[in-house]
Design a protein around this nucleic acid. Structure first.
Length: 468
RNA sequence: UCCCCAGUAGCUCAGUUGGCAGAGCAGGUGGCUGUUAACCACCGUGUCGCUGGUUCGAGUCCGGCCUGGGGAGCCA
């Protein structure tokens, strides 16, 4: 039986490329079945390769028609072999006239939770093992995949080296945020010495955590390869319960030697526009779906971003502008304070109506590694603000001057010994360099219009939730 | 972590001044149809989140807890 051993063709390929007359085998999951008393059934088959289903015509002549085909329900997995034919009805270019349909796995409709109707995203979150089979999560998954690939393509085309920075780290990178402790010490009987936890018997012989950023290690490789980037998981043990935070998320962090903040910002803008363009081109059907069911203005917004020039202005000017706006903000606007979400949104959504690149922030509200400006008050940092979503990129030129960095570390009360290798990069062959971090899941959110970040990652980890 | 809202059938929700628990969808059966969120008729469905309390009587009122959502903080 050649048809049982032949390779399957993906539904995407059939719908786009297959000509009538072609013999193909398809495998997938039943979305719905409709029977015609004309003596045949329509089986809508989806295999995840695209949003659209393939309509399979199963005739009563098939040996298992009454015994099996008529009992197919949403969720069952089948393989169908047959001939691609032009569809006589509107709705699809071609369909498959089945010569054999093999049922691989049943899905009891009494207990199978995915129905042939719209489910709430909250409910689907509780069945994360089944939600990939829905239109929404199929589309999210394809966009996420295409975006990942585009990130590698962008940097690869520009000669960047992809660096695998460690997940487990002994350095508290930025002193920012709570970290997840990594240990093999017995928690029911923690060894102590002089009242403190004795880490000498721990796996690494010292306290270790999951990384909150690959930046510091990326800097090491930037000082050898010039242009590098990391793209991997990042962990924050913050007790954040919002639609924009995950305890485990993915971050892209390019780091470039011989690069200042202006060049850094240019790369970031070009990068974002490239990624969005790629999605517009390669995930057209999925974006149409999001535009219709998730966010009505999605396509207009994405096209706007691609064609608009990002607006750059210093933090100091932004503060003046916010004060002069006369807007009744809930939080005070004052030089030296962090901008709040409402301030950022006003800038990106109301005032400029475009992505905004804020630069030169007060040094008191930024981490130690950012390069100090000559004014003595600010650092060479940038935040890129997107409408709706807020900060999507944070970056800076790094402090490359040994003495200035030492001062800053003291100012931030950091222990020099913990960063001896970071200091040596400034001691031997130091060079100006810059980089930024992009929250990958937030970008997927922005590109799909999905409101909750837990719905753009396969298995979200948030406080009190590590299911699946 | 703070503020606000919600939790009732498999799913989405309604439930009046406290008085016998409801609808749509899904599912089952039958009909109809080159159908495409198919359509028509009939049928079943409950620890009203958990736990105390008030009351003759609580889905409904009060307290505590749990879970989910929106917003904020922190950030990506």
């Amino acid at each position: 039986m050649r048809r049982l051993t032949m390779n399957r063709t993906r539904i995407h390929d059939i719908l786009i490329n297959s000509q009538p007359g072609a013999k193909v085998k398809v495998c997938g999951w039943v979305r719905t079945r409709r029977d015609s008393k004309g003596g045949f059934s329509f089986i809508e088959l989806n295999d995840g390769s695209c949003l659209k289903n393939l309509q399979v015509i199963a005739d009563q002549q098939l040996s298992n028609y009454t015994a099996e085909i008529l009992k197919l329900t949403t969720g069952a997995s089948v393989c169908a072999y047959g001939e691609v034919v032009e569809s006589p009805a509107s709705g699809q270019r071609v369909e498959l006239r089945a010569e054999a349909v093999e049922v691989l796995g049943w899905a009891d409709p009494e207990s199978y939770l995915l129905q042939k109707k719209r489910h709430s995203l909250e409910f689907l979150r509780t069945i994360a093992h089944l939600r990939p089979r829905t239109n929404t999560f199929g589309a999210v998954t394809r966009v996420r995949n295409t975006l990942s690939y585009a990130i590698h393509t962008f940097f690869h085309d520009r000669g960047f080296q992809y660096i695998h920075t460690p997940i487990i780290t002994a350095s508290d990178c930025e002193g920012a945020g709570e970290m997840f402790r990594v240990t093999t010490l017995p928690l029911e009987n923690i060894p102590r010495l002089d009242g403190k936890v004795d880490f000498s018997g721990d796996f690494f012989g010292k306290p270790t955590n999951l990384t909150v950023s690959g930046q510091l290690e990326a800097e090491i490789y930037a000082m050898a390869f010039g242009d590098v980037y990391t793209f991997g998981p990042t962990f924050r043990a913050e007790n954040s319960n919002t639609s924009r935070h995950l305890a485990e998320f993915w971050m892209v962090e390019p780091e470039m030697a011989f690069c200042d903040l202006q060049q850094d910002a240019s790369v970031a803008e070009e990068f974002l526009k490239y990624l969005i363009s790629e999605i517009l081109e390669k995930c057209h059907d999925d974006l149409l779906f999001f535009n219709e069911f998730i966010e009505k203005n999605l396509l207009a917004t994405l096209n706007h971003i691609v064609s608009s020039k990002f607006k750059m202005l210093p933090y100091t000017d932004a503060v003046d502008l916010l004060i002069k706006s006369g807007r009744p903000f809930d939080y005070p606007v004052e030089w030296g304070l962090n901008l709040q979400a409402e301030h950022e949104r006003y800038l990106a959504e109301d005032y400029f109506k475009a992505p905004v690149i804020l630069i030169d922030f007060p040094r008191s509200i930024k981490p130690f590694y950012m390069r100090c400006n000559d004014d003595g008050k600010t650092v060479t940092a940038m935040d890129i603000l997107f409408p709706e979503i807020g900060e999507i990129i944070g970056g800076s030129q790094r402090e490359e001057r040994y003495d200035v960095l030492l001062e800053r570390m003291d100012e931030c009360r950091l222990n020099r010994d913990d960063y001896w290798w970071y200091m040596e990069l400034r001691k031997y062959g130091s060079a100006p360099h810059a980089g930024f971090g992009l929250g990958f899941d937030r970008l997927v959110q922005f590109v799909t219009g999905m409101k909750n970040i837990r719905d753009v990652i396969p298995f979200p980890r948030t406080p009190q939730n590590a299911e699946f």
